[in-house]
Design a protein around this nucleic acid. Structure first.
Lengths: 345, 345
DNA sequence: CTGAAAGCGCTTACAG
DNA sequence: CTGAAAGCGCTTACAG
């Protein structure tokens, strides 16, 4: 209280009249310390306000009870929700989360990975399957558990050298669900606003699934009808502007996520295009706002909070029970709201 | 590469034919190592894929280059943005961010603080001035720099014992700006939808500032005209339902944040209340969506990303240059959009 | 049930 | 410019 220095375990031991070994045991395996001794120790800890030093503990134990996670950005409700699920589950188990964002830069991701590994995290969570060679090397060299999320398949070339469990979604299925929904409404001319697909396998798979499902129904999706935009309302707006200039004009647009879809919807409103009578829009994510706006956004629901929770549980099992994880593909589901309807006749 | 164990500094030293001291110096102060030696060392590091162990380093150095932050939730774009600003600035300086969310529970905050302090973070960032006695005690006992954000004043009783710098907003001014705007449009009957004020000084100050500014203009804001709701669209909706049953019915509503304001707007649309002709709504935060929807949301803009950046810079100066920080009150600004207009005549 | 002591992997005065 | 050695604050076999 009145000393300048933070108390150490030796101070607690001295005050309680025991050795540091006993203090340590009283904290980590209380049942191995006699009741009266334990009480004296706890009393001393309280009196001094002793908080163990994690770096010393981590060094001695070889694990820091910290998990690193690298996400594209926190500035998207979807990732923020997943991180929230991850964090709350981890902290209930006494693990802390170190978080980094790479803003869709592979190089930044590598630096983030290095920085996290230097903090001696016990495990690492990554988003998607596209990572630089250096990142894979770092991760492999670190010999710690790594979990890939948000995707259900990693490119073979990397998979050969790095086997790492996946917890994610079938992003191709997401595109397929959107296509089948719009086809079933009677649409035949489509557009898609995708996130930037470079270094983003989730985005590529969504385009791929959408296009393949259309092809299976005998409908071709020309290159020009797929426009890539950075995630953000402005990207959605720019994408829609582009698509509305095509001839024939698409009557239905699938967007790589809800932010793009909302941007497209807002732009349609600005352009006085009647959604859904003249144009149907389907998004992906099911953000809270998507069910609130008018017309409600048709979208593919991704259980992102659950993704975070599952990732945490899987990691904890792996670290604590040494249970080898299995790949998990979380279910996705189409939610139909006001922004999709049959095409104009 | 082929050994099971992660390489240590001794392995690098052996391979380079130097002592561990020299490897350590080559990494932390390269200018103190001869060029040729340094090259051999870097070569050995690359060959082995050596990544230093942060817990050992932290123990030897007495600092971990990690900052802890505890926020109410990440599941709100505003906090996520601030955390993003904090994280990116810190990581550019080689610091990592440990993040925790307490979901508006003081007890959860205390546990988060303890857990972060046990990880030997170099500094702690908290949101707001309302914290449990235990949290203040822990923080004080830890003797590490602590930064309070989002508010510009901490209750005197705590302030007496804990002097900690603030980087935040004048939350009373926020309420005042909203009140003056609505008064100037001619409104005389007001309602407010506030976040839960218990353990939330920001929310209390916003109510306080709103009510005081109205009083200064000779307008009374009765207790019944202020309804507290949990943050969320549903809270905004429930709040508006309540306010619209009052007689006389308010013609203008101020909401404690944009999520509540949007919820109120959506509910008004559901109730077929014409915004802004029959009802004006003003929010707070200026979320990206607020400028996109129709009608656009009048709101008080808070520079939350900048808050995160400033917090990071302040902390880094404090830790590295030992520069004692001064309190900062970031400017806030009224943004007028379509949801506010003169009252019906 | 408890203590003395070694060890975790770094860093850094101190010598040379 | 480089090395031997002590030290950072814990934990944990090993004795007793």
């Amino acid at each position: 209280m009145n000393t300048a220095e933070r108390p150490r375990i030796a101070d607690v031991a001295a005050l309680a009249g025991v050795s540091t070994a006993t203090v340590s045991r009283a904290l980590s395996s209380p049942e191995r310390v006699k009741g009266r001794t334990r009480e004296r120790i706890l009393q001393a800890i309280a009196q001094l306000g002793y908080v163990p030093d994690g770096s010393a503990r981590a060094l001695a134990l070889g694990r820091a009870r910290m998990i690193g996670a690298i996400v594209p950005t926190l500035d998207n409700a979807i990732f923020a929700r997943a991180v929230q699920g991850l964090q709350s589950t981890l902290s209930n188990a006494g693990y802390q989360l170190l978080i980094s964002a790479h803003e869709y830069s592979l190089a930044a991701e590598t630096e983030a990975a290095r920085s996290l590994l230097e903090r001696a995290v016990d495990a690492l969570v990554l988003v998607g399957g596209d990572h630089s060679h250096e990142t894979w090397e770092l991760v492999r060299g670190s010999r710690i558990p790594v979990l890939i999320t948000w995707t259900n398949a990693v490119a073979a070339s990397e998979f050969l050298t790095t086997t790492t469990p996946l917890i994610g979604f079938d992003n191709r299925l997401i595109g397929k669900l959107a296509a089948e929904h719009l086809l079933s409404l009677g649409h035949r001319t489509f557009g898609m606003i995708s996130g930037l697909t470079r270094h983003n396998d989730r985005a590529r798979h969504r385009v791929d699934g959408f296009r393949t499902a259309l092809a299976d129904a005998g409908v071709r999706l020309p290159e020009a009808n797929v426009i890539e935009q950075p995630f953000g309302f402005d990207g959605g707006r720019a994408g829609l502007k582009h698509l509305m200039q095509l001839k024939p004009r698409p009557t239905a647009v699938f967007c790589g996520n809800d932010v793009l879809a909302l941007g497209a919807l807002f732009e349609a409103q600005s352009m006085r295009i009647d959604v859904p009578r003249e144009l149907s829009i389907v998004g992906c994510d099911n953000m809270p706002i998507s069910s609130q706006i008018t017309p409600g956004l048709s979208t593919v629901l991704l259980p992102t909070y659950e993704l975070g929770q599952r990732a945490a549980v899987t990691l904890l099992d792996w670290l604590i029970q040494r249970r080898t994880p299995t790949d998990v593909c979380l279910p996705v589901e189409l939610v139909v709201r006001g922004t999709s309807a049959p095409p104009p006749v």
